[in-house]
Design a protein around this nucleic acid. Structure first.
Lengths: 207, 207
DNA sequence: TGACAATTCATACGTTCGTATCACATCATA
DNA sequence: TATGATGTGATACGAACGTATGAATTGTCA
């Protein structure tokens, strides 16, 4: 395991952690390399040394956050049998991931309105997640369990649920006094989002 | 109409417009007062003079963008009769507003992950919009047209639809080649989101 | 028209930013 | 233990930032 001559992974990891927390909370521009290195207990030059630049560190953070989410969603998409159950499983996995770790949607959501192209790790995750959902939608339309309509729009209707939960968790907390990170509530929120997603795309003439 | 001794509203308006466009596209931090004043054809000091500070200008922009959306949604919430129709009308109004003018969700979505309190204009609009939806939900639960469940979570399921359309318009365009700003598609997207929202909260035992 | 307030302008100030520089410490290997 | 690569540290640099300042201009009333 010791590829590096020294055990250099230490500060590198701490930089990644500190950067993730700060980027999530304040965004890229509002977070200075001094903020990050101070919080990581590292020297000012550490980011340049380990990552080359602030932006490269940012992309590393994105990758470290987005990849696990996409993996988990992809796994959920393969677990269940029927298309509707698959959709529900995907949404549940998404919500559970996102309520324990809202980093990915927070970061993604800051990038979406930008004009610039999405950073590659985010774009890839987005594609994988929406692809998993759309596959289930198309399969469901074939066997009649999902109602007719543009698969892309139906996918959006499904994806919006868990995504919004991740981003609007703060609203739930402030307006409704309901913290989706609390394990007691998490199951309820996940169940609810999954049900809503299922109902939104299920074929009414069958259900 | 001329409250101001001079017709000073000219540059002031241009500053608001330029700032809105840039804040939407790049966010607050990535937009400098020099960007704004240059684009508005104004002097560097114009923002300080007319608004006092960059942040005050930002809040003015937020108010000018968020207020019309909340007004439109509130009006839509009063137009229809039954709770489900009201929900559908709200979502339609929301989507139509947001596809022609995605500024409000773009700005809001950048603020949501922040730790700091929401800027007042955004918080107020958020409250008004979610309140309008929740009113309809509660009414629908009373008359049985909306299924049982936490009204807050059902509200979230509804609000996520139009909101996500506003934010993910870019994704629709890039992944699916479907531009929701195109009037031809707008109606389809609005209809679709409204249907999805209705299906997500409708009482299945009745429908 | 003359005077005064409102506005626009050019420019300066102090701060913070990301990165570069180069000296120093640490450790594996010979 | 000498050596050389790897990592860490203190500090410097130039650029960009938001705002302040005071002069020049503009427009409106007496």
């Amino acid at each position: 395991m010791k590829q590096h001559p020294k055990r250099s992974g230490d500060i590198r990891e701490r930089l990644l952690d500190a950067a993730r927390e700060l980027f999530v909370r304040q965004g890229y521009d509002a977070t200075s390399v001094r903020d990050i290195t101070t919080r990581a207990g590292a020297n000012l030059g550490a980011i340049t040394y380990h990552f080359g630049s602030k932006e490269a560190l940012y992309h590393s953070v994105l990758a470290s956050v987005a990849r696990p989410l996409a993996d988990r969603v992809a796994a959920a998409g393969k677990s269940a049998e029927g298309p509707l159950d698959r959709i529900e499983a995907i949404v549940r996995a998404f919500v559970e991931h996102v309520t324990t770790q809202p980093d990915a949607p927070s970061l993604l959501v800051r990038e979406l309105p930008n004009r610039r192209p999405l950073p590659p790790p985010l774009a890839e995750t987005m594609k994988r997640n929406m692809g998993a959902i759309m596959d289930a939608i198309v399969a469901g339309q074939r066997d009649g369990s999902v109602r007719a309509g543009d698969p892309l729009l139906l996918t959006l209707a499904v994806a919006s649920q868990p995504f919004f939960v991740g981003v609007a968790g703060r609203v739930l907390r402030e307006v409704g006094g309901l913290d989706p990170r609390d394990p007691a509530n998490r199951e309820r929120v996940a169940h609810h989002a999954a049900q809503a997603a299922r109902a939104a795309v299920a074929n009414p003439t069958v259900t």
